[in-house]
Design a protein around this nucleic acid. Structure first.
Lengths: 391, 391
DNA sequence: ACTGCCGACTAAACCGGTTCAGTAAACCGG
DNA sequence: CCGGTTTACTGAACCGGTTTAGTCGGCAGT
């Protein structure tokens, strides 16, 4: 009874799928598995193609048929499987935001929220989803390989990243933000050096000469060192440092080796860094912080130390996050369009995905500007004397 | 020449795929398309299965073979296609964080960063990716349908959400945070009412009687109204309001209709709300804000109004975000373990995915506690008189 | 009555992997 | 030298959709 055998095989096949009963399996309530397009097709008495059309190309079906299929589908609780759809459509309608740091670190810097806000607003408009890509079990390349995205916005991805080659290899449309530009990728950055210059010049103009620089590591900076192997500065923090140094140098101010410290880009990081510097005997009249979060932390620790800002200590931040407007005193800082950076990056990426890739890849540099609020003033009168004492 | 025809068909087939040349297409550089497992198999002279094993089950192959396959694959730049892998593995190794608000709003409240930090830290440990799910073209259900995730952490998803049925229907493992519990889903929340009571009691104990309450809408609150149809309060904000009212009522203080205002959960929202209330003639001696971000905004606007905090105005926040420690004065607030909320939610979800689902679904309520810092004090001496004047 | 065309629908290929069942060859003790 | 096990690998089914290239019946035109 060969026909019977085939029929039997087919039937058992169906049964296997319906309740997934394996010989040894514990018999649980036979929860109906998620209906597939084939199930809907069968119940509605049409082909899979028709069901697909009913959802995606209703005009190819008689209106009545399409409606019937849809109602059957609704009744069965059918929802097209998103992964299957992605596979066959060859696109995911999702883009990734890649960060070299673990997300738990990234989110600690408010900077990231505003950046993500910018990215998200453009993606939402374009109907794209947002996937966070950060190291998976220590490997960023692995995370990228697992990521189902059509493109990537990479934030602070330094060329010195150990997996840079693997990441390049992923060969996905990619826009780099705050990273050394690779010719093949579009990029968005800001005039970090110019902003840093303006900040330093502001302090010099006020008469400061003993200045503490606080660089940051982590979320904004990428993982690269502030100074490269040959002492030349790389990455965002390097450019900012170069800006500071150029202006200070021109004013005859040399930054000693302990006048540049590094801290995590968080409130706590800034607080701890300034306290440590103070305990080490440093007595700056002004602080150049490479992040507003750090600057707010310094503001806080200066209160612990009974330093009045700006009378005893001037503080300049970087980023111009909203929190800087709400501190007391409001923070003098270098404005960069954080949100717009995210928007621009997302827009460039969507353009590239839409086939409108410009060649060569666009490289956008957004402006920075100094925003003078109330955390800076002329140094205390005693400044000159103390400088002599220490020198 | 039937054999020839078949051979020809096969060949043209390959060609079609290699450069995807359509008759009308502009001839660009024939960029080799991404190699598939079949290409690797062919070059290495093995079957697709072997290539798959070389990556996922190397022990099933002779070491030498596995190595050869891997090196061929590396040379060709082969990376397994993540979507295909998901489809056949029937899991995505990704979980979604669902928010009823657009991401651009969500990120505006620093609360979310800390929550996401908690979720992300657990996911990273478990090797899961993180997808943000927020309304797509206005529809949260659509976004959820498109989302390739194994489970969802839903933040502030109110029962009154218009698409709640469709969302329920998605039938994904889901953990609800700060939402009315549905019996079938695990949930994490905090003792909002208790925290609110403590905050109100603190103000009552200090002697305040004219109190402004600022509720929030947006990221933390879900989209539901603060008060339900029958005047009973729903959701997080409802519970907090109930806590405030219980204590104030017991102290003989009635909250008039304009003594409860609503603002977005942002610095700016708080700033604007308090200014508006002031312009409306309200002269509270204390503010109960349902979010630290709002409280900081109030702090700022009180400076504009030349009100000294806490001497002229006391402010109590809610959440205990780091920013509250760094304000001047540091903020008295209700602590809730925001990060841990994220961690717990993620953990519960991963347990469920791991088949360790407890029944009934666990419902975790985390503690809140009042943290008294420097933004609260006894009301100004003039308080009693002014109250009489207004009444 | 024959051809051509149109509308409605379907069969089968395809997306790119994983995995189950099976096979051929090598190995092994008796 | 023989049955039985292992080892190393393969063919084909499968995951769940979309899309291409038809098929088929009916109707208009001649």
């Amino acid at each position: 009874m060969p026909a019977g055998r085939f029929a039997g095989a087919a039937a058992s096949h169906v049964v296997t799928r319906v309740d997934d009963a394996r010989p040894g399996a514990i018999v649980t309530e036979t929860r109906p598995r998620r209906p597939r397009i084939a199930d809907v097709a069968q119940v509605a008495g049409v082909s899979k193609a028709s069901v697909s059309f009913a959802f995606n190309n209703p005009e190819r079906l008689r209106a009545e048929t399409a409606e019937r299929i849809r109602s059957v589908a609704a009744e069965m609780g059918y929802r097209p499987h998103p992964v299957a759809r992605m596979l066959s459509a060859r696109r995911t309608m999702t883009i990734g935001v890649l960060t070299p740091q673990p997300l738990s670190q990234v989110y600690a810097n408010p900077f990231f929220s505003y950046f993500a806000e910018g990215v998200a607003s453009v993606l939402e408009e374009g109907g794209f989803g947002l996937l966070m890509i950060s190291p998976l079990r220590g490997s960023l390349a692995r995370a990228l390989d697992r990521a189902t995205v059509d493109g990537v916005v990479a934030l602070g991805l330094d060329e010195t990243h150990p997996e840079i080659e693997a990441i390049r290899h992923a060969d996905l449309p990619m826009v780099l933000v705050d990273a050394p530009a690779w010719p093949e990728h579009a990029a968005v950055e800001v005039d970090d050096e110019g902003g840093a210059r303006a900040a330093a010049q502001h302090l010099v103009d006020l008469g400061h000469r003993r200045i503490l620089v606080i660089a940051v590591e982590g979320p904004v900076a990428g993982e690269g060192p502030v100074a490269g192997p040959e002492g030349q500065h790389e990455g965002v923090m390097g450019r900012r440092l170069r800006g500071y140094e150029a202006v200070l140098g021109a004013a005859g101010i040399e930054l000693g080796p302990d006048a540049v410290v590094v801290a995590p880009a968080t409130f706590e990081g800034g607080e701890a860094a300034f306290l440590r510097a103070w305990e080490d005997g440093l007595r700056p009249t002004a602080v150049l912080a490479m992040s507003d979060a750090v600057a707010i932390g310094v503001l806080q620790s200066s209160r612990h130390l009974r330093l009045r800002v700006p009378r005893d200590l001037s503080i300049v931040g970087f980023d111009d996050l909203p929190v800087g407007r709400f501190s007391d005193p409001p923070l003098t800082t270098v404005h960069q369009p954080v949100r717009r950076k995210g928007e621009e990056a997302a827009r460039l990426l969507l353009e590239e995905l839409g086939g409108k890739a410009a060649t060569p890849a666009p490289h956008r540099v957004l402006k920075t500007r100094l925003v003078v609020r109330r955390s800076t003033a002329v140094p205390p009168a005693a400044a000159g004397r103390e400088e002599v004492e220490r020198t």
